[in-house]
Design a protein around this nucleic acid. Structure first.
Lengths: 374, 374
DNA sequence: CTGAAAGCGCTTACAG
DNA sequence: CTGAAAGCGCTTACAG
């Protein structure tokens, strides 16, 4: 709206501005700016006057103008490439990020993208310089724009272990091995020796399996690959995960060969089952229910979960990723990068915890959270 | 960085700017601006040249500068006052909003606040003019700043039915009555006559109860208030909801009086139970399991859920709010308001759907989603 | 149809 | 310690 003075458009056309505060306080804009930004080089006496004027006029600095002048928007982007087969996403993640940013007066702007689209183009918040940094999560297999970003000096923190090779990115990953070993040890401690496992493919699956086998070896139990079913990562999506879990369970339990018929007491090829991905659990439970296999009587069960009330109610012993913590860590790492660009990239692994409930049949050690009434 | 020309700081110190594109194309900044904003009043020949220059330099307009000039940020705020006892929040809501905004090249910036804090102050994104509009959800009982916003011409859409009185806000609410009636009718149709209910307090509870009683009346069944337990809204929070659900279930089922002892076959005061809030479900299930009451044999069950895999796996018949739809609607309403301020506020109610599974014991009509393999 | 210039509301190097 | 002024990178009314 050039060529027209504020006064012509009417005094209260917008919001109170720096200029108006300066006038009321009888100082220059520069001084007001210094006061609201907490620069020390202002005489207490003047500072007082300014603060009073700010309060009186209920002045709030315009974040956009400030961003243009300082070249910092105070905003961080969160790119989520969905659907993602990676646990740990959800509202908790966002809450964790937000909690950290809020302390720094920063804001989170969202970019939920289709995984396909995310492959090709960076989010517009990045190209249009609306964010100071970026947290990326989801299945984007090292999109090329991501690598370029690293040189472009836009701080990035990657969620999950699809960290693009070649470039050093800061990342928050998940430790799949440790909880897998713990889960398996739990079952071993309860006396199980024939333990089945359903594991996802890819790098995660390798880690999960490594943990599983390490625990078995530790107990002197030979690994038996016929008891392990692999599910391809591509099947972990919403539409197909149920069927995949169902199929894998029937395979490991030898239900497929008997045409789904199983009579209690007949004995299963395994006495315990470890389901290493949350998306597979419903399908597995379906297979069990269909054949009237009860948990933990006929089969002990440990799964990866997402900490839902449903898991509690069902009494599932579950490996659980603390999503909020994941978000907090990612945000902290990004803030660190923001303060000191060129800082060495760091990778941090979150270790999920094993929440013991009834389904693994060994509930004495820790009491289940389900039964602890507040 | 005044008093210093870009050329002095090094050519590629930042990003390509409008000016540079104009120079390359041999036109003025104004013309480039017109082209990238799709104004028609540019000769095709010139337009071509500009477009070529834009491509060549990989130019992307700076959103911040544009926002300052146009007084529109292209950003919408989502204020979530947590913890909230209102169903419908979660990642789905955010995805719904985002999907709509993306089509308009707009972005979502988050403000997750403590419900207490939200009572007093508007989020900083609003006071600092970082957003063009606001979607607010959560328990903020008509915070006074919200009402002021209505006069301040900042478009607002309220989620849930805590719409502040006095001012007309656009809002997306939830229809509690219809699905409550449906749920009850379902149980009635299965022959149940003694039906218990656990309902939340407040306006929601009144609606829920109205639906419940309307269905009973429709079937000629007298309402019996001894079969209805009320849970105060303040108890629906994370820490206390489990205990509240547990207690309410024991009350309605008459378990409390018998010191928790119940032997199968003994007969319960009700043959079916309607749990009208998702947060109460785990506690209810706990109470049932503790007394070895099986569903649906001893007791038919219909609950409010959030569409989780756990509900599927447990076979719970559940009233489910489509969170994504809720988000989409809110975003659409806000965009509408943005296009035409002063438009009449509208309120839209989302009707949750009843997903029938095993727990209500009448599974013939619709097949459960749990058992439909893709 | 096109350009020169003012303006959006801040920050900050420079000169006092 | 304080102010006048340039600059951040755009848009747009105005004059041609």
């Amino acid at each position: 709206m050039p060529r027209r003075k504020r006064s012509e458009t009417g005094a209260s056309s917008g919001r109170v501005t720096l200029d108006e505060v300066a006038q009321l306080a009888g100082v220059s804009k520069a001084t007001v700016s210094r006061v609201i930004n907490g620069k020390s080089c202002v005489r207490p006496h003047v500072r007082e006057r300014v603060i009073k004027a700010v309060k009186k006029m209920n002045y709030h600095p315009n974040a956009v103008a400030r961003a243009l002048a300082t070249r910092r928007t105070g905003q961080v982007g969160l790119l989520l490439a969905l659907p993602s087969s990676m646990p740990g996403y959800g509202l908790g993640l966002i809450q964790g990020i937000e909690a950290v940013l809020r302390r720094e007066q920063m804001h989170l702007v969202l970019n939920v993208m289709d995984a396909q689209a995310a492959q090709w183009d960076p989010p517009s918040t990045v190209t249009q310089r609306q964010v100071d940094g970026l947290i990326v999560g989801g299945d984007l297999n090292g999109a090329s724009w991501l690598k370029e970003l690293a040189g472009d000096s836009l701080p990035v923190v990657v969620l999950g272990d699809e960290v693009p090779e070649g470039v050093q990115f800061s990342a928050v990953t998940i430790d799949w091995l440790t909880p897998s070993a713990q889960a398996t040890e739990r079952l071993l401690a309860a006396g199980h020796r024939r333990i089945g496992a359903i594991v996802p493919g890819g790098r995660w699956g390798d880690q999960v399996r490594a943990g599983f086998e390490r625990a078995l070896a530790g107990a002197g139990v030979a690994a038996d690959s016929s008891r392990v079913a692999r599910v391809d990562v591509s099947e972990l999506r919403n539409g197909t995960a149920h069927a995949a879990g169902y199929r894998a369970a029937r395979q490991v339990l030898g239900l497929a060969e008997r045409a789904g018929r199983w009579t209690p007491g007949e004995g299963l090829p395994v006495t315990a089952l470890y389901v290493a991905h949350e998306a597979l659990v419903p399908g597995v439970l379906h297979a069990l229910k269909e054949s009237s296999i009860s948990v933990p009587q006929d089969l002990a069960l440990v799964v990866w979960g997402h900490g839902s009330a449903g898991e509690q109610a069902m009494g599932l012993t579950a490996v659980t990723v603390n999503r909020e913590q994941m978000g907090r860590m990612a945000a902290l790492m990004l803030l660190d990068l923001l303060k000191d660009r060129g800082r060495q990239a760091v990778q941090l692994a979150i270790t999920p915890s094993l929440v013991v409930r009834e389904s693994c049949g060994t509930q004495r050690a820790e009491p289940s959270r389900v039964y602890s009434l507040a």
